[in-house]
């Protein structure tokens, strides 16, 4: 079984969070992150490893036909597969004689896929492979991933859309400034747990995906996932959602927000604070028996914890 690992030694840069990730050949791995982090990750991999990164940035021979391009790549990479088979597998047989500069973007994308597939590397990293292409091409890429897995080639896919990450990856990770987290993506399992959780508690992942917290910025309405929120603070009578030191005004009062968010693991830790317990990194005990909570976000905010709540929160976090 082949695999490759991205670890602290490879990352070794200030602008990326440190993590260790092993990509094996039985499961396609996808990492979802914003564009900046993705670019940083790609640069780091380029600099510190020789893993090929397929970013669709290199040129193809635009004057030549699809067929001539593929024929050239087959020969260059010494690939024994017959040309007609590749053309059919990548659904290029209908445009085989067309020059590339007359082809649609989706057709050209499939030529890229064919090239990468033919290249025969033993590790593969794709960057935004299905961004902006049609359904046929997306399906085609999914089929190709299966073929790559059958050939026991470990593959990593970098995308900036959660939808694509879940669609393409068997294992899905979310890369943020504060680290790499695995996202539950297995559809079968989600169904099971949602049925279970409906019976036991209302804290099911399905409900979590659907529930959004609205906030106003100017005249725009922004919807937040409860899991994104670090904590909620009451400032001068206004309820503010805090995410990485940025604040967004919310319509509800703190008490109303607490009621809605309790099921998502939020906790009223102070008269004017509701904290997302998932994000609590540390309970700081000051002298004189006062407490603070340190949040695991970029700026490592600390928020106060009422003395009367310490018992309660320790119970909730199973510390006692």
């Amino acid at each position: 079984m082949s695999h490759f690992t991205i670890d602290e030694k490879i990352i070794g840069s200030e602008s990326l969070p440190l993590f260790t990730l092993t990509i094996n050949d039985s499961q396609a791995t996808s990492i979802y992150s914003d564009g900046d982090l993705q670019a940083e990750l790609v640069n780091t991999l380029r600099r510190n490893t020789n893993i090929p990164i397929f970013d669709l940035q290199e040129g193809l021979y635009m004057r030549l036909s699809v067929e001539d391009n593929i024929a050239f790549f087959l020969k260059w990479f010494n690939c024994k597969m017959p040309l007609p088979k590749i053309l059919v597998e990548f659904e290029l047989h209908t445009c085989a004689k067309k020059a590339l500069d007359k082809c649609s973007e989706s057709e050209i994308r499939r030529v890229y896929f064919a090239k990468y597939f033919i290249s025969g590397y033993k590790k593969m990293v794709f960057q935004e492979p299905i961004h902006g292409v049609d359904v046929i091409t997306v399906n085609n890429f999914i089929n190709m991933l299966q073929k790559i897995k059958d050939l026991q080639i470990p593959v990593l896919i970098l995308v900036s859309s959660m939808e694509h990450a879940v669609l393409l990856g068997d294992r899905v990770y979310k890369l943020k400034q504060d680290g790499l987290q695995e996202v539950e993506a297995d559809e079968g399992e989600v169904e099971d747990t949602s049925i279970q959780s409906e019976l036991e508690s209302p804290r099911g992942p399905v409900a979590a995906n659907l529930f959004k917290i609205p906030a106003r910025v100017g005249d725009k309405m922004i919807l937040f996932d409860p899991t994104e929120i670090d904590y909620i603070e009451s400032q001068d009578g206004k309820t503010m959602i805090m995410i990485n030191e940025e604040s967004y005004a919310m319509e509800d009062t703190l008490a109303e927000a607490n009621k809605k968010l309790e099921v998502f693991g939020f906790y009223r830790c102070h008269r004017s604070y509701i904290v997302n317990l998932q994000k609590v990194r540390e309970i700081i005990t000051w002298s004189k028996n006062s407490y603070s909570l340190r949040i695991s976000n970029k700026v490592q905010s600390t928020i106060p914890l009422s003395r009367s709540k310490i018992q309660d929160i320790q119970e909730k976090l199973n510390l006692k």
Binding site: R63, L64, A71, F72, K75, W76
Partner: peptide, 21 residues
């Protein structure tokens, strides 16, 4: 050096040249 690859490039460029006005 590989004859295969030289041949690949040769063939590709020979096809490309007539299209390159």
């Amino acid at each position: 050096m590989s004859v295969q690859r030289i041949h690949a490039i040769f063939e590709k460029d020979l096809k490309d040249l007539p299209r390159n006005i």
